[in-house]
């Protein structure tokens, strides 16, 4: 390029016909987060939708129930996000009709990677985090980039305040930069109540420090088959979405106001 520019006949002409290109993307702010426990999974997001400095609405969900044991959080360009969730749900419905069972979590994860990569050259401008219960009964979190790279991990934050939340999670979940007391070890899995508190703290913190985060928190909690409700007792604002007392996985949603400024 620099060789070309140096040539007298290829000098930059400011008067060249310039094409202004329509930009098909925008950023709608907000943050999502998911944490996997031994036998549960927590998937959360704030509900603010914004563009630039304007709050479009204070309630636009970013977290969606896919099946009884799978929840998907989408963040980035809201129009792409909604369309993507719509298409994932459609594929899951087709699967149900074809196989008379829900698609397992790891299969949903692989399907999402295929669907994202199919749009490799005009990507869905969306970060996905999938949480739920695996077929072996363990809590799982899968995180994706916009073109489909994915991995299973214990926790992940994405979106506007990911740079604020992820380091906090690294410290509090993975115990990064902490040394255990002599003769003890860090736990590999945290109890549900502790995780719920971490999620709430993450979002109140992100709300304080990031202008695109706030209004309210929507947290989905998936419990493995046969797990007790330990960790949920005494929690306010929790509502069960699955049939109470069913012997399958159980799904709860916790809605909590965040600061609106």
């Amino acid at each position: 390029m620099s060789d070309l520019m140096a040539h007298p006949y290829h000098q930059y002409h400011p008067q060249q016909p310039q094409q202004r290109q329509f930009n098909p993307y925008t950023e709608n702010g907000g943050t999502i987060l998911a944490i996997a426990g031994a036998d549960f999974s927590v998937i959360a997001g704030d509900t603010r939708q914004s563009e630039g400095y304007s709050i479009q609405t204070r309630y636009a969900p970013k977290v969606f129930k896919l099946t009884d044991k799978a929840v998907l959080a989408v963040n980035g360009f809201a129009a792409d996000g909604n369309m993507f969730v719509k298409k994932v749900k459609q594929r899951l419905e087709w699967y149900r009709h074809a196989h008379s069972k829900d698609m397992p979590l790891r299969a949903i994860a692989r399907m999402i990677q295929t669907m994202l990569y199919a749009q490799r050259f005009f990507p869905y401008y969306v970060y996905n985090i999938l949480g739920g219960i695996e077929e072996d009964g363990t809590g799982a979190v899968y995180s994706f980039d916009p073109v489909g790279s994915y991995e299973r991990e214990a926790c992940r934050a994405a979106g506007a305040a990911s740079a604020l939340v992820q380091p906090f999670l690294d410290n509090q979940i993975y115990f990064k930069n902490q040394t255990p007391a002599l003769g003890s070890a860090h736990p590999t899995h945290l109890p549900l109540r502790h995780v719920v508190e971490l999620v709430i703290d993450s979002f109140t913190g992100a709300t304080e420090r990031h202008i695109e985060v706030g209004d309210s928190l929507e947290m989905y909690i998936v419990l493995a088959r046969g797990r007790s409700l330990q960790g949920l007792e005494g929690l306010k604002d929790v509502r069960e979405l699955s049939t109470p007392g069913s012997n399958g996985e159980r799904l709860f949603v916790l809605r909590k106001p965040l600061k609106r400024d």
């Binding site: 563009e51 479009q56 609405t57 129009a79 909604n82």
Partner: peptide, 12 residues
């Protein structure tokens, strides 16, 4: 509800 040229939607 609102929709614009990008297909961005919301209700309020």
């Amino acid at each position: 509800a609102y929709v614009d040229l990008l297909g961005t939607t919301y209700k309020d």
